[in-house]
Design a protein around this nucleic acid. Sequence first.
DNA 1: TTGAAATGTTAGTTACGCTCACATAAGTAA
DNA 2: TTACTTATGTGAGCGTAACTAACATTTCAA
Lengths: 206, 206
Amino acid sequence: MIQEKKNYHHGDLREQLIEAVTQLVEEDGPDGWSIAEACRRAGVSTAAPYRHFQDRHDLLRHTVLRAMDRFFERMQTAADSFPAGDARRIVALGKAYLSFARDEPGIFRIMFSLTEPLEGHADVDALNTDAKFLLDRVVAAHLNIPVESEQTRARAMALWCFVHGYSFLQIDAKSKAEAHAVPEDMLLYLVGEAIVPSDSSVNSDE
Amino acid sequence: MIQEKKNYHHGDLREQLIEAVTQLVEEDGPDGWSIAEACRRAGVSTAAPYRHFQDRHDLLRHTVLRAMDRFFERMQTAADSFPAGDARRIVALGKAYLSFARDEPGIFRIMFSLTEPLEGHADVDALNTDAKFLLDRVVAAHLNIPVESEQTRARAMALWCFVHGYSFLQIDAKSKAEAHAVPEDMLLYLVGEAIVPSDSSVNSDE
DNA sequence: TTGAAATGTTAGTTACGCTCACATAAGTAA
DNA sequence: TTACTTATGTGAGCGTAACTAACATTTCAA
């Protein structure tokens, strides 16, 4: 994927640096990457990146932005794969979240470690809001209650937290037997049923 | 707390380095600390730590071990504050988890970021197992079903994941309005009721 | 008392982040 | 074309951090 430059001008350095960092983060861990190594992979000097990124942090931020695109894309695809109200839809969303965490644990960690560098960035805020709304709509449709109710927000939040926590615990303890003590599907359906029951017994103003 | 050495031999360097790192991690973020800065605070040269720790990673690992002691202590205290079966017991546990994350977000993040460096270390494994058992017992007592049932393990795991995820999301988005969109107590009781219902309608072999 | 073990220091190596002055290429207007 | 501007890359060099090696000081125990 990453090819060294042939001419004096690289032509695609900005993108390839992001790509290189994306790889390095998975290979060497969230802290194991360096601008220097990314430069080696792209075949440029260590001063070149500063024509495209302000500093180390800025490069990482843009790498995370790319990752968030991929992340949200998966969530959207999962949401589209089942009709509203279908119990499998929520599980599919959870699994999309989980599978991203498993596929890209390094960048996943960084996505939720960076606070200040992403704050205020319109892109990320919009992305977050989109994801939140997506989940709210799914939950509301499933429970057949208004999107703007407190019940919807609370239950969507509960699901979000659960999947987020489960994802983290999974990638932290990947090889530990403990992680698989409870069958995944059982857990997902148990939580889904508990927080967003199929029989729609939830009242929006309860 | 941290006092510079007066004599040639510091006397308490090992502990003070851990203390310094603990502080630095909160002040400058999980990646913002350095051996050099910790040395400055302890008043020793930058070569001194290597008499007590193998390398940077080793120092961090021991810092995390201390943090885990504090963490588990809180959980234990919370568990002891209410009798078995009392609904408030589970909420208290969740709040203890959450309050640690809020009080020491830096070290909290590191606790769950380090994978390899802690793996295989008997201390940490034991600590993790203890915490897991504690939660299992609380859940089993509350539902009045055996500790060793799959229902117990699954529901304890679900609670664990939820609180873990909630903690992370909280410290990530501390200043964001979104984080407080749902009242905390409402969320905790909603999830508690959903996963571990008070009316004990859960059958251990369902 | 005396030698070994523990614990600290100074100096030096390597790697990285970053900047500066300079080089090369690409685009634009005459 | 030519000439000017802008974009993008290089090499050299600075400061800092992790780590090591050789040496110094203290403690402890035989």
